[in-house]
Amino acid sequence: MTTSRFAPGTFTPAPGRGRLGHMLAAHARVETALTLRHGEQILLTLLIPLALLLGLSLLDVLPAGEFADMDRVDWITPRILALAVLSSAFTGQAIALGFDRRYGVLKRLAATALPRWLLVAGRLVAALVVVTLQVLILGGVAALLGWSPSAAGIAFAVAALVLGTLCFGALGVLLGGALKAEAVLALANIVWFVLLLAGGILMVPSALPEAYATVVGILPSGALAEGLHAALVDGTFSAGSCAVLAVWAALAAAIATRTTKLT
């Protein structure tokens, strides 16, 4: 070994932290790309909601009493959007986090100059980007099916979607950051299924027994579905739903900061 392939001075230290905006953008971009590249994530976040949107809009399978004299697609679309948020921000997020921990990603990133809060912020920004794409695609298909949302409620719907994404994102980090990857995988899917069927997404509280309807109303899934329904069908702001989502988000975030493990 006479000459080195590394010129002297190549590795002369020049340490320092990257710019925060640059780090956040880089982290969120990778997280988003990984979600969009992952087949199972696409199935969960897009194909299943899309299939339900088409099926429930076109086929006469829902009890007619649920949507009275409305178009089926007007009734189902807000609920499909709630499902899309549940799928990506919660279930997809939790599973990805569980396996990222297994592969040492969090430890790897925690060893860089990336501040700890940015580890979560990058994931939440990515979750918001994915939800935006889901809403555009699902909303576009719904429009083709004749969906006509209340124009007055669009801003309220956006607020509910952002709050819902933060709430389910925090719950996803709580679950994905605490348990072993396999346990996260099982639990995140079971919770998805239970909330879809019994958590107020496909069945409205008014169609349920009173005590049970109260419980569903304070679940994040029920609150998000009702908030989106109020905004997109009635054009009104559901402060109660948003309060429920905010409380769940704060609780989940407070617990997750204590329980989230790097590996």
């Binding site: 340490p15 780090m23 880089a26 982290h27 592969y103 040492g104 430890k107």
Partner: peptide, 24 residues
């Protein structure tokens, strides 16, 4: 770290650029 550490699906260059973004 022992045994490395990266997203299972991340491309090699993507991972390195992410870590590079954290440095000045």
């Amino acid at each position: 770290p022992q045994g490395g550490g990266a997203y299972p699906g991340v491309h090699a260059e993507e991972m390195l650029r992410l870590v590079a973004a954290c440095a000045a």
